[in-house]
């Protein structure tokens, strides 16, 4: 079985690094990108199984990306996990984009459990 592909859209390099490390250790193929533009480019090249999206990004909002992915039939099957320092789970639920949510900072065990549900 090939490795599941995870895209991590996160502008903070250190967070991106630690998330990538944890998921790589768990056996995922992880591609990180710091901007919406880069993310969109990656999506256009290859679809991931799971997308982990930060919300506050330098050139956009993770929730918008989430909605955009859900609306496109091609991308609507991607499992999305929102990750944010400020936005609570309630707001993610309220935004109606059907995503998982992980608050920053996170407990590694909880985080891995969330991702693994899509493995």
């Amino acid at each position: 079985m090939s490795k599941k592909l995870v895209y991590v859209l996160e502008d903070d390099a250190d967070i991106s690094e630690v998330v990538s490390y944890i998921l790589s250790e768990e056996g995922y193929e992880v591609n990180g990108c710091p901007t919406v533009a880069a993310f969109n480019h990656m999506i256009s090249q290859r679809l991931p199984d799971i997308a982990i999206l930060d919300i506050m990004l330098p050139d956009g909002n993770g929730l918008d990306i989430c909605r955009q992915l859900r609306m496109d039939e091609r991308t609507s099957v991607i499992n999305i996990i929102m990750m944010s320092a400020n936005t609570t789970k309630n707001e993610i639920m309220g935004s109606g984009c059907g995503a998982e949510f992980i608050a920053k900072p996170f407990n590694i065990d909880h985080f891995v459990a969330r991702v693994n549900q899509y493995a």
Partner: peptide, 11 residues
């Protein structure tokens, strides 16, 4: 504040 806290906590 949480951004560095997140990576710190992760590492």
């Amino acid at each position: 504040l949480k951004t560095p806290l997140t990576s710190m906590s992760g590492f």
